[in-house]
Design a binder for these strands. Structure first.
Lengths: 122, 122
DNA sequence: CTCGGTTATGCATAGTTCGACATATCGCTT
DNA sequence: AAGCGATATGTCGAACTATGCATAACCGAG
């Protein structure tokens, strides 16, 4: 076993009733919406289908009872999507959360690798 | 949004060539094998099919090039499976790794929850 | 030398998730 | 009034995963 090992993780938030109402994917989606100004643009940017992006957003909002996005339909440019205050709040808080864990995973991985490379550990 | 929120996570190890050669599922499997003394017993205990347990173990061993389990076929009791030194080593190291992350997730979740409950954060 | 219980492995099936389509609706601009 | 581009939502099919089934090999004990 001489290959390079890496650690990956997934993180998500659940309510009592529903699993995974928020997580990395939905966090990325909100970020992309903020950036692109539309759900469609965000989906294209992320390389996922509009159908999925829309469904994910709906699941998050329905599951949590929070409105993340103010969506407008029609008009010269067809419509748009902008984050609500809650949306911005969640993005920010989740970014920190995720980064915390990411750092910890990296740090703990080092320790893990040391342990498994020592045959003579206790 | 007055429901109780929780955070979940998944953790796994990858090589350059293969994703997920070790993770929570395989860690639980090794634990169960150690406990039950057989792959079959472990699968039943974990509520997964023998087919999957066997396949998972094979993926882990093949992906990492490590032998975790010494398997014996035949005999009065049909056969048995016992952990190798590497197997025990990995279980232990991964347990610590996982626990580290689990604690961190709990701690960071508290901070996260405080942030999203304060509308007046910066 | 047969029996029992386990490992070993292929295959066909069921279940889940996601993407591709297909429409429908909406409302500002021209 | 017509067009454009985004939101809204159902549906069918594809890809992946897990399960169930079938079968074979194995070997100590009676």
């Amino acid at each position: 076993m001489t290959q390079k090992l890496s650690a990956k993780f997934k993180l998500w938030i659940s309510t009592e009733n529903r699993e995974g109402v928020f997580g990395d994917g939905k966090w990325r989606l909100l970020n992309a919406i903020e950036d692109k100004g539309s759900l469609k643009g965000a989906a294209e940017y992320l390389g996922i289908s509009y159908r999925k992006a829309w469904g994910d957003l709906k699941k998050a909002e329905a599951g949590l009872g929070i409105k993340f996005i103010e969506k407008t339909r029609g008009g010269r440019y067809g419509g748009k999507s902008v984050l609500t205050a809650d949306g911005k709040n969640w993005i920010k808080a989740y970014s920190n959360f995720r980064l915390d864990i990411k750092k910890k995973v990296e740090k703990s991985l080092d320790i893990f690798l040391k342990k498994i490379s020592n045959e003579n550990n206790n």
